[in-house]
Write a protein that binds this DNA or RNA. Structure first.
Lengths: 207, 207
DNA sequence: GTTTCGCTAGACAGTCTGTATTTCAGAATA
DNA sequence: TATTCTGAAATACAGACTGTCTAGCGAAAC
C-alpha cells in the first residue's frame, strides 16, 4: 500500500479497445449528424447510438467541445485535406487553382453534413468546437495567400488585381459556405459547383 | 359570471405599452447579440436586460423560436430590405446588379452580429428561428432569379453564361455568408466588400 | 366603481451538461 | 494461475436552461 511497485504496462489490447471506443463514438456522431443535420445534438443520444454510457464520452473526449473538436481533427486527417493541399500545389499556379477548388469541393461534399454543423457551431459559440475549425480555416487562409502569390509570380494575375484582392476572392470561393450555398442551396452537383467556382475565379483573377 | 357582457375596448395605451414591451425585449436581444455574438443566448438573460420577467417573454413571443423569428421579421422590416430590393430593380439591369450588391452589403453590415446568429442558428436547428430566415432567403432567391433574367433580356449576359448559372452566382455573391467571409473573415470595409463582389459578378457574368 | 389585461413573482416538470463515486470485467503482468 | 491494473458501466448529483402554470398587482378602460 505504502510503497507500490510500479509495473510497466504495454496495454496494447486496452489501448486498442479504448481507441475503438473513441471511433464508435465519433462514428455515432457522424451518423447522427448525417441523418438529422438540422437538429440539436445531445451527448446522451450519441452515447446511446455508440452503445456506450454517457460518462464514457466525457472520459474519452473530456467535454462536449472536445468531442466536436476531435471530430474536426478526424475530418482534417481522413477527409482528404492533404490531397486538397497537394492539388493546389501544382507546379503551374493556374493548374493549382483548378485543382484546389476541385479538391475542396470534393472534400466538402464527402462530409457535408458534419462540416455544416461544425462550421455553424463555431460561428455561434467559439468555445463549443474547440480549435478544430479555426485550425482548418487558418490552413486554408495561408494556403490561399500562397496560391495568390504564386499566381502573381507566374504572371497569371490580371494587371488590375492585387495579390491581396486575389487572396480575398480565393478565400471566399474556397470556403465551405460558398460550396454549400451552391451545393445545398442551389442543388448543384459537386462538379457543377467546382465548375462555377473555378469559372468565377478565372474570369475575375486570371488574365 | 355565466353570461359575460363583452365590452368593446379600445386599449390604446395598453396596446402601446405591450408593443413597447416587445420592443424592449427585441432591443435587449440585439444588444446581447452585439456585445457577445459568439456566446449562447439565454431567455432569462434577455428578460433581465429588458427589465422584464421571464414569462413575459413567452407571453410576448410565444417561445424562444418565436422571439428569434420576430427578430428576423423586424430586421427584414427595418433593416433596409425594401431599399435593397428597390436598388436592384433599377431600369438598367447592370445598374440593378451594382445597386443590389451595395444594398445587401450595407444591410448586412448594419446588423452583422444579429444576422450572423440568426443564420447560424437556422443552419443548426431549423425550428429554432421560426421561418424568418427562410422567408428572407426565399425573397433573395426569387430576386436574384429575376435580376438574372433581366440581365439576359437586356443582352448584358456573356454568351457562354445561362440564366440559371447567373442566378447561381448572384445567389452566392449576395449571400450574407459571402459578405461576412470578406467583412469579418478578411476584415474588409463595407465598400471594399461591395467592390469585390461587384467586380466578381461583372467579370464573370457581364459581357 | 368595476372590469379587464399586461405584467410580475414564484414554483414546477423536464431536459441537458458535466462530475463524482462505486463497481465490474478483462487485459497485463508475474 | 493469481494478482494487479484500468477502461468502462451504472448511478447519482448539482447546476443551467426551457416552457408552463398559478396567483396576484396595478393601471388602463369602461
Amino acid at each position: 500500500m505504502l510503497v507500490m511497485a510500479t509495473r510497466k504496462y504495454e496495454q496494447r489490447l486496452r489501448a486498442e479497445a479504448a481507441e475503438e471506443t473513441r471511433r464508435r463514438i465519433l462514428d455515432a456522431l457522424y451518423q447522427r449528424l448525417r441523418e438529422a443535420p438540422a437538429e440539436p445534438v445531445s451527448i446522451d443520444r450519441i452515447a446511446q447510438m455508440a452503445r456506450v454510457a454517457r460518462p464514457t464520452v466525457y472520459l474519452a473526449f473530456g467535454s462536449r467541445a472536445g468531442l466536436f473538436d476531435a471530430a474536426g481533427a478526424d475530418l482534417l486527417q481522413r477527409g482528404g485535406f492533404e490531397r486538397m493541399l497537394q492539388a493546389s500545389a501544382h507546379a503551374s499556379a493556374r493548374e493549382g487553382l483548378r485543382g484546389g477548388i476541385c479538391g475542396v469541393a470534393e472534400m466538402y461534399a464527402a462530409n457535408r453534413d458534419v462540416i455544416r454543423v461544425l462550421s455553424s457551431m463555431a460561428q455561434l459559440d467559439a468555445a463549443a468546437v474547440g480549435g478544430a475549425v479555426q485550425r482548418l480555416e487558418q490552413g486554408r487562409a495561408s494556403g490561399m495567400a500562397h496560391l495568390a502569390q504564386r499566381l502573381a509570380d507566374q504572371g497569371a494575375l490580371r494587371p488590375d488585381v492585387t495579390v491581396d484582392q486575389a487572396t480575398d476572392l480565393l478565400w471566399l470561393l474556397t470556403s465551405f459556405e460558398s460550396f454549400d450555398l451552391l451545393y445545398t442551396g442551389r442543388k448543384l452537383s459537386v462538379d457543377e459547383v467546382a465548375r462555377a467556382l473555378t469559372t468565377t475565379a478565372e474570369h475575375t483573377l486570371i488574365q
